[in-house]
Write a protein that binds this DNA or RNA. Structure first.
Lengths: 348, 348
DNA sequence: CCTCCTTGTGGAATCGATTACACGGAGGAT
DNA sequence: ATCCTCCGTGTAATCGATTCCACAAGGAGG
C-alpha cells in the first residue's frame, strides 16, 4: 500500500497490472473502452503502488497545466490577500491550481513573476498591474496568452478587466465629509502609473467639485500604496500652513501609515484630523478610532476574474466586469455615529 | 524581436541558427564547449524568435522543478502572509520559485494542496501542519520528499523544524500581567492537534504556576485559530460567574474575535478586561487600545526554513532551528506604559 | 607525414505521460 | 461458413528539453 520510494511511473503500473501503458492511461483518465477486468487490475495496481500521474509529463504532452498565474501588487495588503484567497478558491472549484506571484509594487519583480509563470506554461494569467505595462506583459498579450486584469488594468490593451468602481462610493464619502462640515480635504494617491492610483484621485476631485470644493496640488500626496509613503505624505500635510481637515488614503496600507504619522504628531483622530481609506479590512473596526472606508466586493471580484479567465482559456470571449464599491461609515471622520460598524469576514 | 505567436521551441531556434538542438541547449545552459561563432548565432536566433525554454519539458528531463511548495494554515492571518512573503523572497534569491497552498486550517484542504504539489514534482515542501499528520503527509515523508516544518510541526516525524520558542516570552507576559495585579488569567487555545495549539497553553500554564496561579479548565477556551472561535470563547469567559481579568489569545485572529466579543458586551479594554495575543502584527499598534503581543521573528523564520529545505534538497542534513520570540508590551492589559509601542514592518 | 588529443558538433536516447492507428477476436447478419 | 462490425488492446509517435556518445577537423608532437 505504501509507496516504497521514488516515483512510480505509468510503466510500473502497466507491468504490475500486466497491461500496456496505453490501457493504464485510459483507466486513469476514465476513457470508456477498457474492459471491466482490465480496469479492475489497473486500479488494483495503482492502489498497490501508490501511483500518481506525473503532472509535469502530462502537461508536456497535453500542452495544458490546469494552472492559473496570479500576479498581485502586494501580499502584505489584506485586500490582495483576500483577493488571492477567493481566486484560489474559485479556481480550485473549477479544477485549476493557482500560482501566486507577489510584485511588492515593483515593476521589475512583477516582470520576474510574469516571466516565470509564462515559462511554466500556465494556462492563463490574472494580473493586477503595478505599472503601465512592461514590454514583457504587452508581448504576452500580443502572443495570445489568456489574460485578465483584476482591480487595476492597463489602458489601451485589449484584455478583459474585472474591477470595482469606486466612483459612487467616493461621492458618498465626500458628501458624508461635507455634511460633517469638513471643507479642506486631502488625498494620498497611489502611483500615477496604476489605474487605481489616478482613478481615485479623479473620482475624489470630481466629487469635491460637485460641492464646489477645489483640490489644490498641496492636498494631493504622492504615495505608492505602501505604509511608509502614507506616513510621509501625511507629514507633509501636517506641515502645511493650513493642514487638511480630513485625509483620504487611496489604500489601507497608506491609511495605516497616515495613522502612524498623525499619532506621532500627538494629534487625535477624528478630533484633530479625520481619516478615511479606500479598501475596507477587518482591522478597521478595531483601530482607534474605527476607520471609515470604501469596501470592495473582494470575493466577488476574485470569482468573476477566475470565471472570465477560464472563459478565455476555453475559447470564449468574456466581457469586462465592474462591480460597485460601497461606503462604510465609522468614526474616523467625526461624529457620523456608527451606521455600519462591523465588517464581514468574506467567508462565503 | 517580438515573438509572432504560440511557443517557439528549441527546434525553431536550432533551425534559425543553423545548428543542432544540442548546441542550442548548450548555449542556453552556459556549457563551455561551444564555439564563439555558434554561440553568437544561437543567441541571435534566441533574441530574434523570443525563445524561452519550456520549463515543463526541462523539468521532465532533469527531474527537478526548482520549485518549493509552501502549505500554510491560513493566508488571511497576517503572520502567515508575512511568513510566505519572506519564504518567497529567500527562495527567489536562491533561484527557486514558491507555490503557496492555503489550508484554511482544514486538514482535507491541506491534503489537497500537498497532493497537488507532489503531483507537480516540486523539489521540496515547507509545511505548517494544520493537524497531527495525515497519512498522505506521513507517506510523503517516508517516500523521502524533502520536507521542513515551519512554525508548527508533527511530533515523532523525522523532519527538521524551523520555529520560534515562545516559552520565555510567555513567561515575560505572565510576569507583566502579575505585576499589573492580574490573577485571573485565561487563554484561548488553538486546536490541540497542532503543536502551537497545545504548546502555548503548556507554556502559559507553567508560567502561571511559577506565580502560584492555577489555570482552571473554565479559563481555557478552545479555539481553532480563526476569529470566530475567539469570539465564542470570549463570550463563554464573559458569561462565567467570575470572568478572567485578562484573556490571552494564542493567535492574532482569535484576539481580533475576542476584541469583537468584548466590544459587543459593552466592555472596555483594558479597563474592564485585559487582552494579549500571540503573534504581533502592524495593526496591533493602531487598535483600540494597542495590543500587547508576543512577536515572532517571522522574516528570520522564513529565511531559515528555506535554507534548511534547500540544504535537504541538495543532499545535506539540516538541523532544526529554534528562534526566540519576544514580548511587546502595549496598553491592552493595563498601564504598562508603552515600552515598545511600534512594530516594524519586516522589510529587510 | 603520421599519430594522438583536443575541441566543437550532431544524432539519438530519454524523461512520463497521451493518443492515433493497427490489429486480433468475438459475435451478428447473410 | 463467410464477411463485417465492433470492442479492447498494444505499438509507437510525440511533446520539448538534456545529455551521452561518436565523430570530424585541426593542431601539436614525434
Amino acid at each position: 500500500m505504501a509507496p516504497s520510494s521514488g516515483s512510480v511511473s505509468i510503466k510500473d503500473v502497466a507491468a504490475e497490472a500486466g497491461v500496456s501503458v496505453a490501457t493504464v492511461s485510459r483507466v486513469v483518465n476514465g476513457h470508456p473502452s477498457v474492459s471491466p477486468a482490465s480496469r479492475a487490475r489497473v486500479l488494483a495496481a495503482v492502489e498497490a503502488l501508490g501511483y500518481r500521474p506525473n503532472a509535469v509529463a502530462r502537461s508536456l504532452r497535453t500542452d495544458q497545466t490546469r494552472t492559473l498565474g496570479l500576479v498581485i501588487s502586494d501580499v502584505l495588503n489584506p485586500y490582495f490577500t483576500e483577493l488571492a484567497r477567493s481566486v484560489e478558491e474559485a479556481a480550485r472549484a473549477l479544477g485549476y491550481s493557482v500560482i501566486i506571484g507577489n510584485a511588492d509594487e515593483r515593476p521589475e519583480l512583477q516582470d520576474h513573476h510574469v516571466r516565470t509563470l509564462l515559462d511554466r506554461r500556465i494556462d492563463g494569467l490574472l494580473v493586477s498591474p503595478t505599472d503601465g505595462g512592461s514590454p514583457l506583459m504587452l508581448d504576452a498579450v500580443r502572443a495570445g496568452t489568456p489574460m485578465v486584469f483584476v482591480d487595476r488594468w492597463i489602458p489601451g490593451v485589449d484584455v478583459p478587466v474585472v474591477r470595482s468602481d469606486g466612483r459612487q462610493a467616493v461621492r458618498d464619502l465626500v458628501a458624508h465629509l461635507h455634511g460633517l462640515g469638513h471643507r479642506r480635504l486631502a488625498i494620498i494617491a497611489g502611483p500615477a502609473a496604476t489605474t487605481t492610483g489616478s482613478e481615485r484621485v479623479e473620482a475624489f476631485r470630481d466629487a469635491l467639485r460637485e460641492h464646489g470644493i477645489a483640490l489644490p496640488a498641496a492636498y494631493i500626496g504622492q504615495g505608492d500604496f505602501q505604509a511608509d509613503s502614507g506616513r510621509r505624505a501625511t507629514e507633509r500635510f501636517l506641515a502645511l500652513p493650513e493642514p487638511p481637515q480630513v485625509v483620504f488614503a487611496a489604500d489601507n496600507l497608506m491609511a495605516l501609515g497616515a495613522l502612524d504619522a498623525i499619532r506621532a504628531h500627538g494629534l487625535r483622530v477624528p478630533h484633530d484630523i479625520g481619516l478615511a481609506a479606500f479598501d475596507d479590512i477587518p482591522w478597521f473596526v478595531h483601530t482607534d478610532p474605527p476607520v471609515t472606508a470604501i469596501a470592495q466586493p473582494t470575493g466577488d471580484l476574485g470569482r468573476a476574474a477566475v470565471r472570465a479567465l477560464i472563459d478565455r482559456i476555453e475559447g470564449r470571449s468574456p466581457r469586462s466586469v465592474t462591480l460597485p464599491a460601497r461606503l462604510v461609515v465609522r468614526r474616523s471622520c467625526g461624529e457620523g455615529a456608527g451606521e455600519d460598524t462591523s465588517v464581514r469576514r468574506s467567508n462565503p
